[in-house]
Amino acid sequence: MAENVLPEKGLSLYRKVRNALLGALTAVAFVLAVTPLLAIIYVAYDRGKAALSLSFLTTLPGGFPVGIEGGIANGIVGSLILIVIASLLSVPVGVWAGLYLWDQSHTPLAKATRLLSDLLLGVPSVIWGVVGFYVFSTNTGYGFHWGFSGLAAGLTLGFIMIPIVTRVTEQALRDVPRSYIEGALALGASRFQVVRGLAIPAAITGIGTGILLGVLNVLGQTAPLIFTNYYNTGIPKNLVGSNGSVGDLAMQIFIYIHEPSKGLHVKAMAAALVLTLIVLLLDMGIRLLAWGSRKYAQRMG
């Protein structure tokens, strides 16, 4: 950074060469970093464009093999249901845990919680799926006997989300300047008042980003769904029991690609493009929201 401020002409040949090399490396790194995104969008569009239309988003799969006709409405609705269930579980729990870790950061319980959530972040999703299967789905399991169902899958995904939301919430609260908190405490605010009235509002975009990260994670999972939900070509009326499975975009792509049918492969890639665009839009949405609320806070408060 500072180097650019210096007058160029005084630089030695060595520094000039070094600067040029660093510049070239940066350019290469940049290209390598953005290529995959462009590649994903290009490949998905190129392979899937034949299936793309508005009705692709609004119709259920049909024909034979199933999906050769119709669209991905089951997947869109199902993914939405899963996101809602997972968020209902993970947002309150994760935000509460994050608050606790921030407020009581040095207690043994907080240290244990932090360690635990870091461990959970590293558990492969297939293991979450198998455990979810034994706890929520199978009749020979430990708990709920819900069968392959939206509720079993949504809760499993919710548990995957909790440590993500927890850690991001804690970090967002840590980023609130200490002086800000002290200002309120010095006015006789209680801890609770400071948390509710100042810390959470100041950290809210960070917390929102954490929730979004969790949601994006849920959108991309297939392994847990294989064991707890599998897939549905329609839209279910129940979320538990024998007909309780929901559709899911990632599962839909996974299943279509495994079928020996060129037509389904086209549908899969069209669905992949839709899923990618949803993820990108969500990501940009939260960025816009963060930017907007910063602007708003600066102006108003």
Partner: peptide, 14 residues
């Protein structure tokens, strides 16, 4: 016993 700090620390409010 109120306190005023070294760096002004107004809240993100009006």
């Amino acid at each position: 016993v109120g306190m005023v700090f070294q760096k002004p620390n107004p809240f993100q409010k009006s």
